[in-house]
C-alpha cells in the first residue's frame, strides 16, 4: 500500500476535503451520487454509500467505479466498516473514501477495513492521525489490508 499522503495542512482544508490518502493515483473529484442513482444511470463514476445502503448492490458495477465514498453520519455507526470490507472482498481496487464524522481513533480500523482515503468533516491534527495510523505493531485478524495476522506470523517457517 502506498505511503500516507497528507493532501494539505489541516488549517488549509475545508470540511469534507480529503485530508489523508494512501494512493498515488489522481484524486477523483467527480461528485458522488447515491447508490440508487448510481445503479440506475450509466455515466457516473463516483458513488456514496449511506449506512442503510447495501454495498452488494454495487458489485455488478465495480468495473465502472473510480470512487466509493462511505458516509459516517455518526462515528458510532459501524455499518460502513462492513460495507468497505464487502467491496474489497469483491475485488474493488478503486478509491474507498471515509467521509463524515471521521475521527482520530477510528482511522486505523477504517484503514484495516479497506479505506484508503479520509475526508473528515472536521480536519484532524496531523501528528495525532499519523500516530493513530501507526498505532498497532501487529494485528490479530485478517481484514481488507495487507497486514499479516499474528497467528500467521507465529506459524511461519
Amino acid at each position: 500500500m502506498a505511503e500516507l499522503i497528507s493532501e494539505n495542512p489541516a488549517e488549509a482544508l475545508a470540511s469534507g476535503d480529503v485530508q489523508f490518502r494512501f494512493r498515488d493515483d489522481e484524486l477523483v473529484s467527480d461528485p458522488a451520487v447515491t447508490v440508487d442513482a448510481f445503479v440506475g444511470q450509466s455515466n457516473a463514476v463516483a458513488v456514496r454509500i449511506e449506512p442503510g445502503d447495501d454495498a452488494r448492490e454495487l458489485l455488478p458495477h465495480l468495473d465502472r467505479i473510480a470512487l466509493v465514498e462511505v458516509n459516517f453520519p455518526a462515528y458510532t455507526d459501524g455499518r460502513g466498516y462492513s460495507a468497505a470490507r464487502i467491496l474489497r472482498e469483491a475485488g474493488y481496487a478503486g478509491e474507498l473514501r471515509a467521509v463524515g464524522d471521521v475521527l482520530i481513533d477510528q482511522l486505523s480500523h477504517m484503514k484495516r477495513c479497506g479505506f484508503d482515503a479520509f475526508a473528515p468533516d472536521a480536519p484532524l491534527n496531523e501528528d495525532d492521525a499519523k500516530a493513530a495510523f501507526d498505532r498497532w505493531p501487529h494485528v490479530y485478524q485478517s481484514a481488507a489490508d495487507d497486514r499479516t495476522p499474528i497467528w500467521n506470523l507465529r506459524h511461519e517457517r
Binding site: Y81, R85, Q106, S108, H109, M110, C113, V139, Y140, A143
Partner: peptide, 13 residues
C-alpha cells in the same frame, strides 16, 4: 479472544 480483540469491523456494533 484473539480474534475479537481490536476487531476492525466490529468495534462499533
Amino acid at each position: 479472544r484473539q480474534w475479537s480483540s481490536f476487531h476492525p469491523e466490529f468495534t462499533y456494533l
